[in-house]
Computed example of a mutant assay.
Amino acid sequence: MNLDMVITLLEVAKGHGITGRDIEEVLDTNSTTAARMLRLFDRIQANGKEGLDLVEARISPADYRAKLRFLNADGEAFMARVGELLEGRKG
């Protein structure tokens, strides 16, 4: 997993719903790269390949054209495990 992927997943894990435009700003990148980063974590990527299935997209209540990304159950479990590993390194 590269640094952009880690940053993207951490942003999604904040839990407030993140858009591709938000990722563009955080990564200081273009819309194509931001969309690709988010699709990596979906169940199925745009090219039909299997994704990591850690994130789900929901329609924004404020704008039906916008998709908000949230961790799904597997994503929550993955981030919990990462947290446990990081806590173990502190002690």
Results as ranks from 00 to 15, higher is better:
residue 65 R to Y: 00
residue 70 F to H: 12
residue 80 A to V: 01
residue 57 A to P: 07
residue 83 G to R: 13
residue 76 E to K: 15
residue 81 R to K: 15
residue 90 K to M: 10
residue 75 G to L: 04
residue 65 R to M: 07
residue 49 K to N: 15
residue 87 E to Q: 14
residue 78 F to V: 05
residue 87 E to Y: 05
residue 53 D to P: 02
residue 78 F to A: 11
residue 82 V to S: 04
residue 84 E to V: 14
residue 45 Q to R: 15
residue 75 G to R: 03
residue 63 D to R: 15
residue 74 D to Y: 10
residue 50 E to G: 04
residue 86 L to K: 03
residue 59 I to P: 01
residue 52 L to G: 01
residue 78 F to L: 07
residue 89 R to L: 14
residue 48 G to C: 00
residue 77 A to T: 12
residue 90 K to W: 09
residue 79 M to C: 10
residue 59 I to L: 03
residue 70 F to D: 00
residue 65 R to Q: 09
residue 91 G to H: 10
residue 74 D to T: 13
residue 71 L to T: 02
residue 58 R to A: 08
residue 78 F to W: 09
residue 73 A to F: 07
residue 46 A to L: 08
residue 77 A to I: 08
residue 44 I to P: 01
residue 74 D to N: 15
residue 52 L to N: 03
residue 72 N to H: 03
residue 56 E to S: 14
residue 64 Y to H: 07
residue 84 E to M: 06
residue 48 G to I: 05
residue 68 L to I: 04
residue 86 L to D: 01
residue 76 E to F: 02
residue 42 D to N: 14
residue 58 R to K: 14
residue 79 M to N: 03
residue 65 R to G: 03
residue 55 V to C: 05
residue 75 G to W: 02
residue 79 M to R: 07
residue 56 E to W: 03
residue 71 L to C: 05
residue 78 F to M: 11
residue 44 I to D: 04
residue 91 G to Y: 08
residue 83 G to E: 08
residue 70 F to V: 05
residue 65 R to I: 00
residue 46 A to K: 09
residue 89 R to G: 08
residue 87 E to C: 07
residue 65 R to H: 07
residue 61 P to L: 05
residue 53 D to W: 01
residue 59 I to R: 12
residue 78 F to C: 08
residue 85 L to M: 13
residue 60 S to Q: 07
residue 45 Q to G: 00
residue 66 A to P: 01
residue 77 A to M: 14
residue 72 N to Q: 02
residue 75 G to V: 08
residue 54 L to V: 06
residue 87 E to G: 09
residue 64 Y to S: 14
residue 63 D to T: 12
residue 56 E to V: 10
residue 73 A to W: 02
residue 69 R to G: 11
residue 41 F to E: 01
residue 69 R to W: 09
residue 41 F to I: 03
residue 85 L to I: 09
residue 88 G to E: 10
residue 46 A to M: 08
residue 77 A to N: 15
residue 83 G to P: 00
residue 48 G to F: 02
residue 56 E to Q: 13
residue 70 F to R: 13
residue 83 G to L: 09
residue 72 N to D: 00
residue 86 L to S: 07
residue 45 Q to N: 10
residue 51 G to F: 02
residue 62 A to P: 01
residue 76 E to W: 02
residue 76 E to C: 04
residue 86 L to Y: 12
residue 72 N to A: 02
residue 62 A to Y: 14
residue 45 Q to K: 15
residue 78 F to Y: 14
residue 48 G to E: 02
residue 86 L to V: 11
residue 74 D to I: 07
residue 44 I to F: 11
residue 90 K to A: 15
residue 81 R to D: 13
residue 56 E to R: 13
residue 59 I to H: 00
residue 61 P to T: 12
residue 78 F to D: 00
residue 84 E to K: 15
residue 88 G to M: 08
residue 53 D to Y: 00
residue 44 I to C: 05
residue 88 G to Q: 06
residue 67 K to M: 10
residue 56 E to C: 09
residue 53 D to I: 00
residue 90 K to Y: 13
residue 45 Q to V: 08
residue 62 A to S: 12
residue 77 A to Q: 14
residue 84 E to F: 08
residue 43 R to Q: 14
residue 77 A to D: 11
residue 60 S to F: 06
residue 64 Y to F: 09
residue 67 K to H: 11
residue 78 F to N: 05
residue 48 G to S: 06
